[in-house]
Amino acid sequence: MSKSTKVSNPNAKGGSGFIWAIVAVIAIAAAVIGYIVLSGQGKKTEHLADRENISVAFDSTFADNAVTLKSADAKPDAEVVDLYEDFSCSYCGQLAENTDEQMQSAIEAGDLVVNVRTLNFLDRGSIDGHSTRAAAAALALAEAGETQAYWNLRAYLMEDQEDIFNKWSNDEFADAAKQFGASEGVVEKIRSGANVEPTNALATANADKLNAETGSVSSPRVIQDGKDVDVADINQWMSVVLG
């Protein structure tokens, strides 16, 4: 007589061990993925800890859609200009790299007051574009009065834009701000993206102002008394303005 073979029902009590084993494997996999994600946060910006953090001796105020950089000892006859820039503009990056040090010296000497007016026209209307999100990060610092962190983050976003263009999320912008000394509240504001929509409105208003004064929108631009500074090479604008 042949022996019968009994097939176990996987839904029976004895199969519960198998089900719990699958659940355990899934839980472990989720934990591993979570660890990888968390351990990877900040990796794109950790090198900024080795970057020189430039000290500044001027103040910043955030009003009228601009960040005004001005020394407490600014002279009554200090020259005042509007600097229009876009964080996706390679020429703006070159201008910042070539002239920021000289601009800082002139501001700190009380000879120059600069209204930095951020644009985002290179996002082509996308509110989630690189220009807008980079500007939102920098302007969150300016709005909080964290001038040194603003100045250093702005410089990095301009000078190294080729390396980060369209590669960063709000997390990376927040981590970068933290590396430059931003307060925890501002870091979390950047991370949440809460400042992106207001920044888009600000940049649009700046574009409207530039267009109304000059008839066109482009960057970089240095405007004084409603007109472009008359200079063949924009990298030499301070020589003209300061005489």
Rank of each mutant, 00 (worst) to 15 (best):
M1P: 02
S2V: 10
S2R: 07
V7A: 06
S8C: 07
A12N: 03
G15A: 04
S16I: 11
G17L: 10
F18R: 10
A21T: 13
I22D: 04
I26H: 02
A27T: 05
A29V: 09
V32S: 01
Y35Q: 00
Y35V: 00
I36H: 00
V37K: 03
G42F: 00
T45L: 04
D50G: 12
E52W: 01
E52K: 05
E52Q: 06
N53V: 07
I54P: 02
V56S: 04
F58W: 01
D59N: 05
D59T: 03
A66R: 07
V67I: 13
V67T: 08
K70H: 06
K70V: 15
S71H: 08
S71K: 06
S71T: 11
A72Y: 03
D73I: 12
A74H: 05
V80S: 10
D82F: 09
E85G: 15
F87I: 00
S88P: 03
S88D: 10
S90K: 15
Y91W: 12
C92P: 09
G93M: 08
N98Q: 14
T99I: 15
E101L: 14
Q102N: 15
S105D: 14
S105P: 06
A106R: 13
A106T: 09
I107F: 09
I107M: 10
I107E: 05
A109R: 12
V114K: 01
V116C: 10
R117I: 13
T118E: 13
T118N: 13
L122P: 10
D128W: 09
G129Q: 12
H130Y: 14
L139W: 12
A140G: 09
A140H: 05
L141I: 04
E143S: 10
A144Y: 09
A144M: 11
A144K: 11
Y150L: 07
W151A: 02
W151Y: 06
L153M: 07
A155W: 00
Y156K: 00
L157E: 00
D160I: 01
D160W: 01
F165P: 03
K167A: 04
W168F: 08
S169C: 07
N170I: 08
D171A: 11
E172G: 02
A177E: 11
K178C: 08
K178F: 08
Q179P: 13
S183T: 08
V187K: 06
E188R: 08
R191G: 05
S192C: 14
S192N: 13
A194G: 14
V196W: 13
V196L: 11
V196I: 14
V196C: 15
E197A: 12
P198W: 15
P198L: 13
L202T: 10
D208P: 00
N211P: 04
N211S: 08
T214F: 09
S216N: 10
S216Q: 10
S216R: 11
S218Q: 07
S218T: 09
I223T: 06
I223H: 03
I223N: 03
I223D: 02
D228P: 01
V229R: 11
D233R: 02
N235S: 05
S239M: 01
S239W: 00
V240H: 00
G243I: 03
